[in-house]
Nucleic acid binder design. Structure first.
Lengths: 134, 134
DNA sequence: CAGTATCCAACGGGATACTG
DNA sequence: CAGTATCCCGTTGGATACTG
């Protein structure tokens, strides 16, 4: 496997892993939200559980790989539950845990910030890039 | 230059750049916080302006490269100001703009979440990894 | 002091093909 | 349906050396 999950890497280096991340919780936070899609997944699951394919449609643009990987890492962190119903064909539901819901609050606050202030950020970028070019 | 900033890339592809990022503000938000250190920088500057070297000491673990790059991208986005005092030696101060301060609120909410819930995340990880190993 | 320049290893993540 | 397995390229970002 060329691309390995954090869990898989940990298998190879059992205890040294968490150590090389910074010790401050802010660093840990970044490790959590750093994954490009986890934020999307959490906010997608806010309104209720979804199936694998639902997530794919809801998020749109995510690759199959990330669509598996992101919920898995969130499952590892205890933020989402993954329920497999062994029917044929299989059915898998993802949902937020209580812990996951507790994160979705602050997360959506950030989302609101982005929505309300993004025009100003764009504006600033335009100015900055204009100055640089000139 | 091997590693190029977003601004520099934009110079080469003037208008197509923002288009290839998702159009939803959540995507944009990730583009903003995706940079590993921007969160740290914003929260470091919360209590007041700092000089380059202060930031380095405050954040600890950041490389010289990121210590320049992160504030720059935040400057581009209109979140921090960069003030150069042309003395000898030079002195550079970084500070949050009003926009930057408005972000620091939601951001610190997230930080609080990380601080209060991280033991539970660790716990979950331990369980998960234990099950995988077994 | 506050950067810039260069090099390069490692990780993220998309495309594609295959499976229980 | 919900993945897993491979391949592979682009970007991130650390180390190191040099500069106005």
């Amino acid at each position: 496997m060329a691309t390995r999950t954090a869990a898989q890497r940990r298998e190879e280096a059992p205890s040294a892993y968490d150590a090389f991340l910074g010790d401050r919780p802010t660093d840990q936070l970044l490790g959590l939200l750093g994954d490009k899609w986890v934020g999307l997944v959490v906010s997608a699951l806010r309104d209720g559980p979804m199936r694998y394919s639902d997530l794919g449609r809801r998020i749109a643009g995510v690759s199959q790989k990330m669509l598996t990987q992101s919920p898995r890492s969130l499952e590892r962190d205890g933020l989402v539950t993954r329920t497999v119903t062994p029917s044929v064909p299989v059915r898998v539901d993802y949902g937020l845990t209580e812990l996951g819901h507790s994160l979705s609050g602050p997360l959506s606050a950030l989302k609101v910030w982005a929505e309300t202030h993004f025009d100003r950020v764009h504006e600033a970028r335009g100015r900055y890039d204009g100055e640089v070019a000139a």
